[in-house]
Design a protein around this nucleic acid. Structure first.
Length: 113
DNA sequence: CGATTGACCGAAG
DNA sequence: CCTTCGGCCAATC
């Protein structure tokens, strides 16, 4: 079934698997998918993620742990609130101890097969 | 169909 | 340390 219909589906699949209280980066997901150098596509996928509810886009940040996509969320601090709601502290639009909450799919998740 | 953009990343100066 | 540039691929204009 819709296996190759969208590169997006692949992204959603990974984002969905992001555990509670954890965050990942676009590049990490891209690397896991093999796109590696096209982390921008992950961002694009997230843009379409609005169509889904099982995709915690608020857990996806850039490699710097900065809430780059917060401007795409409704309200102004929803993304921060969601993360803080999961026990993650936000400071100046940036995740505190980002690497501490960092969740690498290519490491925590089994390789795509 | 050509040009531009986009929630990025990494390297180079 | 900071700024600039290239790359990558898909969607939109």
């Amino acid at each position: 079934m819709k296996d190759s219909q969208g590169f997006f589906e692949r992204v959603y699949e990974v984002v969905r698997k992001v555990p509670y209280g954890r965050v990942t980066s676009y590049g990490a997901i891209a690397r896991y998918l093999g796109t590696g150098r096209s982390a921008r596509m992950v961002g694009w996928a997230m843009n379409n993620a609005h169509a889904l509810e099982d995709v915690p886009a608020h857990r996806v940040l850039n490699r710097n742990g900065v809430l780059t996509g917060k401007h795409h969320f409704p309200g102004s601090r929803l993304m921060e609130q969601l993360l803080e709601s999961e026990g993650i502290r936000i400071r100046d639009d940036q995740v505190v101890e980002f690497k501490r909450h960092f969740w690498d799919p290519s490491v925590e998740l089994p390789p795509p097969g």
